[in-house]
Design a protein around this nucleic acid. Sequence first.
DNA 1: GGCTTAAGGAGCCCATTTGA
DNA 2: TCAAATGGGCTCCTTAAGCC
Length: 293
Amino acid sequence: MNLHSWMGEGSVQRLAPRQDLGVAAVDFRLNDDYTVALHTQVPMVELSCCVQGYRRVEVSGREFEMKPGSWSLQFANPAEARMPFTKHQPFQMMSIAIPVTAFHHFMENAEGTRAVDFHQIIGTLPYRVFQEAYDPASGHLLQQMMEASARPDSLSLEMECRILELLSHAFRSILLDREQRPSGLSRTDLSKLERAREIILDKMSHPPSLSELSRLIGLNEFKLKTGFKDRYGSTVFGYLREARLETAYRLLQEPHASVIDVSVSVGYSNPSYFAEAFRGKYGMNPGTLIRKA
DNA sequence: GGCTTAAGGAGCCCATTTGA
DNA sequence: TCAAATGGGCTCCTTAAGCC
């Protein structure tokens, strides 16, 4: 559905690659503030991945905010929800909804034992949400899904594969691996690690060294390295490298992009090494992507 | 302008050790 | 027991030259 020009610009796409998977790809900018009111009829699980813009959700008197670069795994019993959108703010999000039966099927291991149960998670609450920053690999998957949803020739098979892979990443990160994380990280440590992540993404072109970064966030190098890997599933510079290439992938598709400009802007002073790294991740040269775009 | 290749250095990663 | 330090190996990145 394309938005009417009086309402704004952009679109909302609904896809159903199979019966138990509902996908909404949202990419728009509104001319006026607008609130969407929803009433869910049945218990469900929804993964919402916020790519751009902020979104507030009000459910049963509680309010949550979704930030760009984060995903929210929501468990909902039938409830009323409100989602206010702010005018002139670009907003991009991918949401995947599945029924409880499908969630339970996905959570079964090879022996038929269920690792996580919907009813144990939500208890008597009307709504429960888990939020965290998604990893670069999932960010890349999201990018591919957004592109595929906009292409009329993309196959259901391709979309379904990416949806299941994204769900697998999210369930593993949010529900399964969470319990195995060492408890040595306090709330303050987690907050400092999040600050470290923000710093390296903000200073992508000239990142601080590990020792500088540890001083900046007030955490020793040991905790920075072990804690970062534990929290984000990657080393500090491994995470930075993935983020650099993802940013480059997006920038290369913009009008008048050049390989040299993009490589420098994401922190590669040498376009040749940038091209090699890009090829290693996406299987094509950056110049090829420019021509395709 | 974009890409390939090779050499070499910086510094990151991680297993191991140290010490409080 | 666990945070912190250490050191070797290795990856990442730069530089330079040359080709398309």
